[in-house]
Amino acid sequence: MSATDATTTTSSASGAGAKGMIGTFTSRYASVLPTFAAITILIALLAGAEIYFGNFLTGRNMSALLLDNAYLMVLAVGMTFVIVTAGIDLSVGSVMAFTGIFGASLFASGVPFVIVIPVMLLSGVAIGLLIGVLVQYFNVQPFIASLAGLFLGRGLAYVVSLQSIRVEDPVLLWLGSTRFTLGDFYIAPTGVIALLTVIVGALVMHFTRFGRTVYAVGGSEQSARLMGLNVARTKVMVYVISGLCGGLAGLVLTAYTGSGYPRNGIGTELDVIAVVVIGGTLLSGGRGYVLGSMIGVFVFGTINTIINFMGAEQSWTHIIVGALLLLFIVVQRAIVARSDRSR
């Protein structure tokens, strides 16, 4: 007898009819559900705000959403890589501050942008590499290793300067102040950088073996190792990518504000983690999308804008984001519990 006889219908998706289709859907796309939830919330927020204020969904507003949160989006891409491996990177806010002020001081002393920009990115990479090596080869908890990175980045930022440094470099000013317009909508080069980062991040995650290994490591590091995948390199690389995004965010923020400031980005790491989680990435690793994190950024930005519109205290943003975060974590737990049960 052959094995073929023994297996007739084994897939849960094999049933016919509507139930079968739902089966196919949940067995294929269960991990997309949290991101769908984020999109739903974003639409609800936008629609609600439009109904309430009447003049919310304007080109200006929507464009500002991207402009104001470009640095957050860049950081969220890197953070998604890290969190999908079940790690965490607390250093991103201070890496952004350090690379920003470092770049600004180099600009101020007349170094040309072709040198400054790579140096900014490489500084981020260096800190990321340090964290990754600590995590992988010295077996330090990601929380602790990146906490060290946080203090290091912040300390270095203060070493460079205690005051804000204005940037006069024409290239950087161009990055920050140019507006490509289309009707009511506009986009700045920093916004383009942010969107490109998202696209490249999403492509790497989905269409490269490295990206798939990131998911495998998050699903089960042990299994990934036994499957012969290069776990060590992958785990170091995700922190390097997060560091690179930190450097890029430093560039974007410096261009956006026209200056470097060593106190930038205090607490930003927590905002980044929040948007990534709201975007549907599981803190326990293995599930999540870069595009979801972009949605998370838009949810975060929209809440911010709504609070501004209402003229309420900014602290309400944090309360609402906190509540949303809680809601999402509960929703994710429910989804994970359900997919565990359905085996």
């Binding site: 073996r209 998911y215 990934a224 036994l226 293995g286």
Partner: peptide, 25 residues
């Protein structure tokens, strides 16, 4: 079973040996 429950069946079979075209996997 040392596979990754979060990935698709096909990926678990092919992980590390995915077919690649010009634009990645």
């Amino acid at each position: 079973v040392n596979l990754c429950a979060n990935l698709s069946v096909g990926e678990n079979v092919m992980l590390g040996h995915e077919k690649r075209g010009r634009a990645g996997i």
